[in-house]
Design a protein around this nucleic acid. Structure first.
Length: 259
DNA sequence: ATGGTAGACCTTCTA
């Protein structure tokens, strides 16, 4: 089973590009982030024509996440538990039905910039809520994948120039520690499955020629519960899509598991 | 040099 995650930076502006990749890669499950539309504006029919079931947790203008699956999605949870006042659409969870069900979440973690503002506070608070919820999910002892744009550069090997990012929320010690906390709970970063691969960036800014200069960062991650990590067979970053017409600034990331 | 681009949408915010 191929589980993909992709921050598409507006699903409607990107539809042709996204469908092109779906037709070529045909993931079984896909987590989308930054769809930038309300539920009713999500182009569900286009994905249904390709054989996908669709659930959406949308929002006007900003954020918004979706889950696509070849088999029906059950036990759907919209929004991250822990703060009823949080109105930002950044979390969507469901169980992918089948003989070997897998619980999957599409995650769009807050960016947190600039430092010293409530945006960074919100990021860390959101991270704490995610850790609390992940702990509850891990207690179920199911195959589980938490996939998405975490807006965290885990380490210095995950950025073209660490010094250029020291003042950025994505590379703060607190952000990196929060990401490690998820792993101490028992989640595995599927990226570790790449053997001897060079830096695997997943994002290149639209500005300042970041793509042609390969000024990238690795911020899109797939975290797996023990049962899912044991079943991991491959992990791929589809960096070629960054060179396509009208690209997202993020590229798709895929974990293949064999349960 | 504190730049640059993209998307939503209406003037500026977010990334």
């Amino acid at each position: 089973m191929k589980i993909a995650t992709w921050n598409v930076n507006s699903v409607n502006a990107r539809l042709e590009t996204v469908l092109r990749w779906f037709e070529a890669e045909r993931p079984d499950v896909a987590c989308l982030q930054e769809i930038k539309c309300v539920d009713e504006k999500f182009p569900a029919e286009a994905f249904e024509r390709l054989g996908y079931n669709v659930v959406v947790h949308g929002q006007k203008t900003y954020n918004g996440v979706a889950l696509l699956s070849r088999t029906p999605l059950e036990d759907v949870r919209r929004g991250l538990p822990g703060d009823d006042a949080d109105e930002q659409a950044r979390y969507l969870e469901a169980v992918i039905s089948g003989p070997r069900p897998v619980r999957v979440a599409s995650i769009y973690l807050p960016n947190g910039n600039p430092l010293g503002t409530d945006k960074f506070t919100y990021k860390l608070a959101w991270f704490a809520r995610l850790a609390a919820h992940a702990k509850d999910l891990l207690a179920l002892e199911e195959p589980l994948a938490l996939a998405g744009d975490y807006n965290v550069i885990p380490g210095p090997d995950d950025v073209y120039d660490p010094a250029a990012w020291t003042g950025d929320a994505l590379f703060q010690p607190e952000s990196r520690a929060a990401y490690r906390t998820l792993q101490w709970l028992g989640l595995t970063d599927a990226y570790a499955a790449i053997d001897g691969a060079p830096a695997g960036y997943t994002f290149w800014d639209y500005q300042a020629g970041a793509w042609p200069r390969n000024h990238g960062i690795r911020i899109d991650h797939i975290l797996l519960s023990p049962l899912a990590a044991d079943a991991l067979r491959a992990f791929t970053i589809h960096r070629d899509t960054r060179g396509w017409e009208k690209p997202s600034d993020h590229v798709p990331v895929v974990a293949e598991i064999e349960l």
